[in-house]
Write a protein that binds this DNA or RNA. Sequence first.
DNA 1: TTGTAGGCGTTATCAT
DNA 2: ATGATAACGCCTACAA
Lengths: 331, 331
Amino acid sequence: MASIKDISKLTGLSLATVSRVFNNSPLVSEKTRQKVLKAAEKLDYQPNMMAAALRSGKSKIIGVIVPEINNHFFSGVINSIEKKLSDADYNIIISQSHESEELEKKALQSFMKLNVDGVLLSISKETTDFLLVQKLMNQKIPVVFFDRTPKLEVSSSVVLDDYKGAFMATSHLIDKGCKQIIHIAGDPKVSIFNKRKEGYIDALKQKNHDVSEDFILTLTHDQLRDMSVIKQLFQNNPKIDGIFAHGDEISLYVINILTTLGIQVPKQVKVIGFGNVDFTEHTYPRISTIDQKSHEMGLLAAEMLLKSLNDEEIIHSQQILSPELIIREST
Amino acid sequence: MASIKDISKLTGLSLATVSRVFNNSPLVSEKTRQKVLKAAEKLDYQPNMMAAALRSGKSKIIGVIVPEINNHFFSGVINSIEKKLSDADYNIIISQSHESEELEKKALQSFMKLNVDGVLLSISKETTDFLLVQKLMNQKIPVVFFDRTPKLEVSSSVVLDDYKGAFMATSHLIDKGCKQIIHIAGDPKVSIFNKRKEGYIDALKQKNHDVSEDFILTLTHDQLRDMSVIKQLFQNNPKIDGIFAHGDEISLYVINILTTLGIQVPKQVKVIGFGNVDFTEHTYPRISTIDQKSHEMGLLAAEMLLKSLNDEEIIHSQQILSPELIIREST
DNA sequence: TTGTAGGCGTTATCAT
DNA sequence: ATGATAACGCCTACAA
C-alpha cells in the first residue's frame, strides 16, 4: 500500500506538504496540490486511518449500540444515523447488546480500545450500571442515548413520547366507540413500556372509562402462544371490544388468535399496536399502530452527537419526539 | 488514557516486557506478569488498537457488507457472524449497500482505509464491477461472499441452494394436491431469484405438470399493491390452486389480497413463501415457507474467513447449504 | 527472562 | 508556501 512517503518521493515534495493536501489545508498552492493528487492517483494511494487516528487522537469512528438490529425500529434509526454520520465523514460501527448488560459492556470496551470519537447508545433491558458510560464521558467522548435511556442527570438523549403514543392509541379506540379496552403490556423492566401503560390508563381516565388491573395483561410473547389465556379472558368478559397492544408483533398475534376464535376484527374487537413495523401494512386486516419516528430519532441523535463533537464543550439536552397515529383497517 | 509507557514507569519494567504480557507471550515470568496486570488494573489501562494495528498491520477488524440490515435473513447471518468473530477477538463493522453499487464501493473504500483484516460481502442487486474486491484480494485481504455472490472464478463463497428450496416448495404444493401452481418471481437481476424460478419450473416438469410463462409473474411489491392484477389473474384462471412466492413478504401480501377477494387460504388456494421471516409464524393462517439457514450461513462464512486469516495461503472454496421446508397452515 | 531501539503512517510544531 | 522533525502507542528483532 502506497503511503504519503511514496508520494513525497515521487513528487519531490516533503511529507508535510503532501499531508497538507489531503487535509485540505489552504497553505498549499494549487499547482502542488494537483501534482500531489496526480501522484496519489497513479500510486493508488489510500490514506491510512489507523495512523491518522493514532497521531491525531481522532479515529473518525462512531460506535452505535442497539439491543437488536433485527428490529424494524432500530434498523430504521441506524439507517438515518448512518446517513447523517457518513455525510460528515464518520465511519460507524454497530454492535448489538441482545438485551444483555454483559454484551453491552463488551461492546463499550471494544469502542474504547478502538478510540471511537463518540457513542450512540440504546441501552439493554437489563442494564443498571453505567460506570463504563461515565468513564467514556469523563474522557470527553460524547455519548448520546436514544429510545432507551438511563436515569442519568447529565446526559444527552432523544426519546419518543411513549406516554403520548399510548394515549393517542387508546383515545383512538375510544373515539371509534370502544367501551371495554384492554391493554397488553410489555416487560415492566423497560421504562418505555411502563410509559405506554400510563398513557393507556390516563386516556381511559380522561374519558371517564373504568380502569381495571384485570384489563392490563403483562404477558410475554411466549405466554401468549398458549391462546387459552386470551380465550378465557374473552369468555369471562364478552364485552371487551378494544385492545391496545404494546407492540405490533403482539397485535398481529392477538388478531391471529381472535380470528381463530371466530372473533372478527375490527367488527367485534378493534386492535391497535405500537411501532408501525413493516408487516402491519401487509396483514389482513392491516393493523393500526403508532409510528415511532425512527428516522427522526436517528437524525436528531446523530446531529446532537455531531454538535458535541464539533463544539468545545458538551451541552446536555433531552429531546422528546412526538409519535404519530397510523389508522388502518384493524380499528 | 494510560499507555504501556505508564505501566512501564510504574513497574520499573521495560516497554517490551509490558507489551509481551498483553500479547500473552510465554517469554515472561509469572511474577512480572502479575505485577504488570496489577499495574494495568490500577491505571485502568486500555490497549490502543490503533497503535497496535499500525505497528502490526493487523487491525482485528472485519468488514461486513449486506444490502439491508433490516431484513430478517441478513440480520440472522450477521448475528452468527458477530458471534463467531467476536469469539475470535475480532471487531466487526457492518455496512449496508442499500442495493446501490456506489454505496457498496464507498463501504469497501472505508474498509481499505480502516485496514480491515478481512471482508464478508453479500453484493447488491446492481453490482457488476468487482475491481475493488479484486484489489482487496490482491492485497491478501481475504474476502468471503455469502448469499449474493458474483461470478468470479477465484473466490470463496457460501450460498443457499435456492434452486433446491424452490423445488422443495413447489413439490410440496404438488404433494398437497395443487394442480395449477403459479409463481411470483423476483427481480431477474438477482441470480438467486432466477434460481428459484428454475426450481419451480423443474419441479413442475418432473411431476408432469404444465409449465406456462403466463403462470410466472414478475411483479414488484409496489406493483402488487394494486390488487387488480391478482384479481384478473384469478378471474381468467379460476383453477389456480397454488402459489409459490419468491419471498415471505409477497406471500403475506398475496394471502391478504386473496382473503379480501373472498378466496380462502389454504382451502381454495395454498400459498408458500420463501425466507422463514419472523412474522410468518404470527399470521393467520401461519405461512409455510423455506428456511434459508441464515445462522449456518453466517457461521460458515465466518469460519471460512477465519481459516483464510490464520492460514498462510488462501484457499478458495464454494459451499452450498441446503434449505429446509417449513410446513405451516397456509398449505 | 528482560531490555534497547527502530519504525509503522500520519500530523503538528517549528523553522525557512 | 514548503520543509525538517518529533511524536502518537505499540510491536519486534536483536542484544544482553
